[in-house]
Design a protein around this nucleic acid. Structure first.
Length: 320
DNA sequence: GCTGTATGATCAA
DNA sequence: TGATCCTACAGCG
């Protein structure tokens, strides 16, 4: 799935290729027909990520449905869930507009191949599969499949959503506030810290992979209660999340093995190589989906268990 | 063709 | 805690 880094990339991609343009919005599948009608023909101003939520703003979209301090804007809220994904395609100017290399598909994995490199672009292809939303500009298109949420909301809804969200490592402004707030929320409850890291009210954007890898790198047992995490451990976790997730945005994949886990915070010199993207998948993480393999630190077999309905991976030998 | 799986989240009980 | 929703694809017979 798309953890927070994927959503931030998507937001950037959508803003790059559609920002400021009038777009046709449709729902080939039909399940978003009413919402699409509200947005169709309006200018897409920008897209933004708040944790795993993708917010796409439209200027002057139809306000008939709104009774709540309508300000002339409508926002398309998308949550990809486990397997939602976008595909993109278009002419050279559309692809060239992307600052992240215009991956054809973004979401669960970013290596899908779609049409789009045709010499001449003659419009979007006939929709394949269950396309919930299709965005089309003069130069390209984007298809959304399989989102868990896809709805038109108001500015007031957006404010409420921001209010409910825990701090987002990908929106950290470098100040102390977010780290301290994260530490406070994490240390407030007796629930297993492995569960709290997945709680979007505690921290936004972390998913199952980052959860496992962050705790491994920090040497923290996922079953340790949040209350028993030291303040310093919490702020170090935050700092590591900021680094790893920014790496994720840059690379378009989660790679946690290229930074020294013992010096995750200060070692800016251990940044990823340009070709880190070539690392084989299984070498990109320490414990996630490495059940039974020896821990690279202590040799203990990596364990797995189900925690709150999600697969958990950790090293019982060096996480305490 | 069928089954299982997935980087998510919500709801009922 | 379990059921449920969303979709594509790998693996299997």
């Amino acid at each position: 799935m798309p953890e927070g880094h994927s959503i931030h990339r998507l937001a950037r991609q959508l803003t790059d290729v559609f920002g400021g343009q009038r777009v046709r919005v449709s729902s080939p599948q039909g399940r978003f027909a009413a919402g699409a009608a509200l947005l169709d023909g309006h200018v897409l101003t920008r897209a933004e990520a708040v944790g795993k939520q993708l917010l796409v703003s439209f200027d002057g979209a139809d306000l008939r449905a709104g009774a709540d301090g309508a300000d002339g804007h409508r926002v398309l809220r998308i949550h990809l869930g486990l397997y939602g994904a976008f595909s993109f395609g278009g002419d050279a100017s559309f692809v060239g507009a992307s600052s992240i290399g215009a991956p054809r598909r973004m979401g669960e994995s970013e290596n899908g191949q779609d049409a789009g490199d045709d010499a001449e672009y003659t419009g979007p292809p006939a929709p394949v599969g269950a396309v919930r939303v299709r965005l089309v500009s003069d130069h390209g298109w984007a298809d959304l499949r399989g989102p868990t949420a896809c709805e038109v909301i108001t500015a007031g809804d957006v404010a409420a959503l921001r209010e409910a969200a825990g701090p987002d490592p990908l929106r950290a402004d470098g100040g102390h506030d977010d780290a301290a707030e994260f530490a406070r929320l994490l240390r407030r409850r007796g629930v297993a810290c492995g569960q709290l890291l997945m709680d979007q009210a505690v921290v936004s954007g972390i998913g199952n992979v980052y959860r496992a890898e962050l705790l491994f790198r920090a040497g923290i047992d996922p079953y340790r209660p949040g209350r028993k995490i030291a303040e310093r451990e919490a702020t170090d976790l935050w700092a590591d999340a900021v680094f790893l997730m920014h790496d994720g945005v840059r690379l378009g994949r989660i790679v946690t093995t290229q930074r020294d886990p013992h010096h995750p915070v200060a070692r800016e010199d251990v940044t990823l190589d340009a070709d880190a993207a070539d690392i084989p998948d299984e070498a990109t993480r320490f414990v996630y989906k490495h059940t039974g393999e020896p821990c690279p630190h202590c040799g203990t077999a990596i364990a797995t268990a189900v925690m709150a309905g999600r697969n958990l991976y950790w090293c019982p030998g060096c996480q305490h």
